[in-house]
Amino acid sequence: MKDRTVGGRLFDIVNITALILFAVLAMLPFLYIVFNSFLSSEEFARRGVVFFPKKFSLDAYMYIFSTNTIVRSLLNTIFITLAGTAINIIFTSLMAYPLSRKELHGRKSIMLLIIFSMLFSGGMIPAFLVVKALGLMNSLWALLLPGAISAFNLIILKNFFQQMPDGIEEAAKIDGCNDIGILIKIVLPLSLPAIATFSLFYAVGHWNSFFTAILYINDTAKWPIQILLRQVVIMAEGGIGDASQMSESLAIPAQSVKMAVITVSTLPILIVYPFLQKHFAKGVLLGSVKG
């Protein structure tokens, strides 16, 4: 391999420098939130909100965890994310695989209906009436079942399945494997990059979703973390903790409480991302080559 030219090396240096700067700029807002969540009452009284506190304090975290409110909301969100992602992947796979088979009669008509649903929807009020008629109001299932399948993800996964060699499935049928067995034992194991990618898409969507919970959940005990975060941001501390349990009598800055809740609600999904990141780009590109 020939040595890089001076121009090529200079181009690499400029690119790397620019990417590092963009990465730092992207991280600054999150670092600002994390650092201010450790802001102490004394420093807030002297300096106000700062980017980097001189002294770190856990008062805000002790306050928000002094009751089970945030833990309960986190558990609700974890259940919604895990159960919702499992439902999404199961239903999307079960629908995408038959549509990827050319021998399925009427699959073009079904695909037209799916594409139509991407462009037009019944709207919020009809969706609310359907959820109410099904008896799902004030239930966590109201956040899971209505959005069981994403039309966009379905189309990409269908295209991914279509790219698999027909010979693999034909060999499995010769060995006596039925369609469900082919899907579970052959197609899905070979589709792990795509499954991991769409699992991440669905999981992030469930973790960040709050509007459907506002519509369908009235019981505060069933609130996901994003609804609790919204209440804290709108109503300052929002009664999330018990100030009488704190060792110090100093008032905890509302800004620190907000930042602490944002940090707690963001970190779990950030921790999950690195485990799926290696499949992320590969899964999307493989399913978007042909229709």
Rank of each mutant, 00 (worst) to 15 (best):
M1G: 03
D3P: 13
D3N: 14
F11P: 05
T17L: 14
A18R: 11
I20K: 13
A26M: 13
P29T: 14
F30A: 10
L31Q: 12
V34S: 08
V34G: 07
F35L: 08
F35I: 00
N36T: 02
L39I: 05
S41R: 09
E42W: 14
R46M: 07
R46G: 01
R46E: 04
R47M: 03
D59A: 05
M62H: 13
F65G: 06
F65K: 08
S66D: 04
R72M: 05
R72F: 01
R72T: 07
L75E: 10
N76T: 09
T81C: 00
G84W: 00
T85N: 05
F91D: 12
L94H: 09
E103S: 06
R107P: 00
L112Q: 10
I114E: 10
I115N: 09
F120M: 09
A127E: 13
L129H: 05
G135F: 11
M137C: 05
N138S: 11
S139N: 07
A148H: 14
A151L: 04
N153L: 02
I156E: 07
L157I: 06
N159V: 03
I168R: 10
I168F: 11
E169N: 06
D175K: 07
G181V: 10
I182Y: 06
I186Y: 10
I186P: 00
V187A: 13
V187E: 02
A194K: 12
L200K: 00
L200T: 06
F201P: 00
A203D: 00
W207I: 06
T212Y: 15
I217N: 07
A221W: 15
K222M: 04
Q226I: 13
I227W: 13
L229F: 06
E237V: 03
G238N: 01
G241T: 02
G241Q: 04
L250Y: 14
L250V: 14
A254N: 12
A260R: 14
I262G: 09
I262K: 01
T263S: 11
L267M: 12
I269G: 08
L276Q: 05
L285M: 06
S288Q: 03
G291Q: 02
